[in-house]
Every structure is written in C-alpha cells, then in structure tokens.
C-alpha cells in the first residue's frame, strides 16, 4: 500500500512535467492543427538557457533557492517564447496555406535543427545544474517520504496550467484565442488580428515548455541536448491521450500518462514501461478515437 502510494506520487511528479509540455503541443494544435515537433527541443532550450542565465547573473547563493528558481523560470520562459515566436514566423507562417503535412515536415526539420544547435553551442555531454540550490527537505505523508521540491514542482506546474486556463477562458485575449481556434475566417471578420493571436500562442506554448525545462534542470540536475525527444514524444502522447486541442485534456493526459508509466514499471515491467504506456494510448484511442476529453470528431484530412 505504501509502495502504491509512493508510486502514485512518482507518477504524478513526472506527469506534471509531461502536462506542462503537452500544453504547448495542444495549444498550437488547437490553433493551427499543426503538430509542432520542435516543441520538445524548445523545452530543452529552456533548460539550457536557465543554466546559462544562472551562471551569467551569478544568482547562486545570492538569494533564497526558490527565488532563484522562480527568477530563472521567468527569464527562460521569456527568451524561449521569443524563439517560439520567431520559429512560427520563419518556419510555419509561410506554410499556413499549404498542405498540413508540409508544415509537419518543416517542424521535424526545426526539431533536428534546434537539438543540434544546442549540441553545437553547449556540447554533446550532459550539462549539470549546480547542486544545492534547492532545499532537499522531505515531507512524510502516510509513512512515505516525499521530497518537498517534488511537491512544489507539482504545485507550480498545476498553478501555471490553471493560470493558462483562466487566461484562455476569462480574458478578452483568451476569447480571441478561442475564436481563432474555432474559425479563423469568422474571427478575422470580427476584427481579430489572427496573425497576432497565433504569434501569442507561439509565445505562450514554448514559454510553458521552457518553464518545464528549467524545472527539470533544477530538480533532476542533468540536462542533455537530446532530452527533448523523449519528453516531447511523451508530452505529445499525453496531449493526444487527453484529446488534442483541449487544455484540460492535456493536463489530464499528462498526469495520467505519468501514473500509467509509474504503475506499469512497478507492477508489470520496467523494461516494457514505455510499451505499456503506448499500448494504453492505442487502446484508449480505439475506444475513444478522439482521446479522453476530445469531443469533436477529428476532421478529415
């Protein structure tokens, strides 16, 4: 029982990161029906920029560890958002009226480009966030020791998601985003600047990915130029699992995927963990072809 509870918390911690990255996929998809394969690498970029900023401002030890973490997340989010904006302008906007798969290949190219650019700039070796920034206290819950940072990370990720949800549903700009997602043409007629709205989405999505990247760097310590691939694939799976284009769906999908992985590893097989996760995804899609919360029927090609 204790082990089950421990595994659930393990799964939720990983799942929160998946969910945070999945939001970027799902927002861009909801807007442009484009799978932004470069998103995982923007997440990696966020982690690396966080490390660079930490060194550049010599933040370590100057203030409280949590404040350092928060400052890094905010700065890295800003920079990666800018990169996301440029990516859309350069690689996706010219293709908006072409065949959808054209943009997918462009996104795949961008993904290869970013991961290799990071490798060239920082080297192929793992980079390491200096240890001891964050407190290492653990809190006991029902006889299970959970590191405080895990709980904070989980809360942080959920808070970011809720903020986004509030932003999309309770603000004027949010309504504009939803309007463009539903019908670009009609939104244009209503006086919404579709291009700016799309740019905004490309600021928010990669920004959230960068937040995930810094969190991973701060907590796990080790980052590598190609880590965006596995995180990206998992997050994309999570987005599909929840119903792509749907924000609560991405959150649910991410947390669920994390838990499935942890329980699969614990009670079936560690080596087959990812295969179990993908099998569950396929089974869910067979019975709910549009994911758990996806209501609309996927459009024809």
């Amino acid at each position: 029982m204790e082990e089950l509870f421990q595994q659930l918390t393990n799964g939720l911690a990983v799942g929160a990161i998946y969910a945070l990255i999945a939001l970027g996929y799902t927002m861009v998809y909801g807007m442009l029906r484009l799978i932004n394969f470069a998103h995982g690498d923007l997440f990696t970029l966020g982690a690396y920029l966080g490390l660079t900023l930490l060194a550049a401002f010599a933040l370590e030890g100057k203030m409280n560890g949590l404040a350092v973490g928060g400052a890094l997340i905010v700065m890295s989010m800003g920079l990666v958002a800018l990169v996301g904006y440029l990516l859309e302008r350069i690689a996706y906007r010219p293709l908006r009226n072409s065949n959808r798969l054209t943009a997918v290949v462009s996104a795949l190219g961008a993904s290869i480009f970013f991961s290799n650019a990071i490798m060239l700039a920082y080297g192929a070796r793992s980079q390491v966030y200096p240890g001891g920034i964050l407190p290492t206290t653990a809190i006991a819950f029902f006889g299970v020791e959970i590191p405080l940072m895990r709980i904070l990370m989980f809360i942080g990720a959920i808070a970011l998601m809720l903020a986004l949800y509030w932003f999309i549903h309770r603000t004027r700009i949010g309504s504009a985003i939803r309007a463009v997602a539903i019908d670009q043409g009609a939104a244009k007629l209503m006086g919404i600047n579709v291009n700016s709205v799309i740019s905004l989405v490309f600021l928010i999505g990669p920004g959230l990915g960068a937040a995930g990247g810094v969190m991973v760097g701060l907590y796990y310590g080790e980052i590598r130029y190609d880590m965006g691939f596995s995180f990206g694939l998992k997050a994309f799976t999570a987005a599909i699992l929840g119903g792509i284009g749907n924000i609560p769906g991405a959150m649910l999908g991410g947390l669920l995927l994390g838990v499935i992985e942890a329980l699969g590893a614990a009670y079936i097989s560690i080596a087959w963990k990812d295969a179990i996760a993908f099998t569950v995804l396929i089974l869910i899609l067979i019975f709910r072809p549009t994911g758990l919360l996806g209501e609309r029927v996927a459009d024809k090609l």
């Binding site: 549903h169 939803r178 997602a181 609309r296």
Partner: peptide
C-alpha cells in the same frame, strides 16, 4: 493533390476547454 494544395487548409474548429462555454 494539386487541387488540395490550392484549396486553403480548413480552418481549425478545435475547441479550447470542452467543458466551458465558448
């Protein structure tokens, strides 16, 4: 394909937040 390439992509009708009014 030629026809498809010329026809504009269908504008997305994805919905953000299935449970909320939009």
């Amino acid at each position: 394909l030629a026809a498809e390439a010329r026809s504009k992509t269908a504008t997305g009708n994805a919905k953000f937040g299935a449970s909320c009014p939009s």
